[in-house]
Amino acid sequence: MRFLAKIANIVWKDLVAEFRTKEMISAMLIFSVLVIIVFAFAFDPVGETVRAVSPGIIWVAFTFSGILGLNRSFVNEKQNETLLGLMLAPVDRTAIFFGKVITNFILMVITEAISLPVFFVLFDFRMEGSLLQLLLVIFLGTLGFVSIGTFLAALSANVRTSEILLPIILFPVLVPVIIGAVESTATIFNQGAFEQIVGWVKLLAVYDVIFLVVPFILFDYVLEV
């Protein structure tokens, strides 16, 4: 219980600080909506191509805006060396990781909750597949993205060019998550049966579990780098 309380405390601290300045969330939201607007101009919003490219557009908007948040999550802890303050506290260091994962997840979900309707409006897109299945895929895809992203953000935070380094090391590792999320979303948009996305959903779930478990073993070393 204490471990969970420490995680909740870290999430509380991050969200209070974030919603006071709205530094990360505003950048993520603006970027996500801008990506959708750019694609709305690039493609004919009423053409048949929209249905084919829309899953890719959605996940490009989600992941590219998410990178902005991930970049700041540990870099912010470098000001006044607050990360050292966390490391000195009597708390298992994986609590720091899970606190950051939950904060990043909440920020991404807020961004997605606003930018997805914007996409539907700008592309005049009628959602005909299962909304529940779409939400499941977005949940798993986002969790995979933030768990891997938070882990690598901690790794790259000590590098001076961390904002350049993070996308370079993150996207190759993220390929299975992006492919799984895009393929599942496309199937849902085409009103495919759940059986058609079960394989992708399993892949996303396994990836999420792996990258939620790996930090238990490695996060101590990552912080000491």
């Binding site: 420490k6 601290k13 300045t21 006044n80 060396e81 607050t82």
Partner: peptide
């Protein structure tokens, strides 16, 4: 770690939180 306190030239404080919120955060951590 619970027995130790550290004062450094770095303050380990969060600029966007108030003094009270900083102390509440660290108090809960300990």
């Amino acid at each position: 770690r619970k027995k130790m306190g550290v004062i450094s030239h770095n303050t380990f404080l969060y600029g966007n939180l108030t003094a009270y919120e900083n102390l509440l955060f660290y108090g809960r951590m300990y």
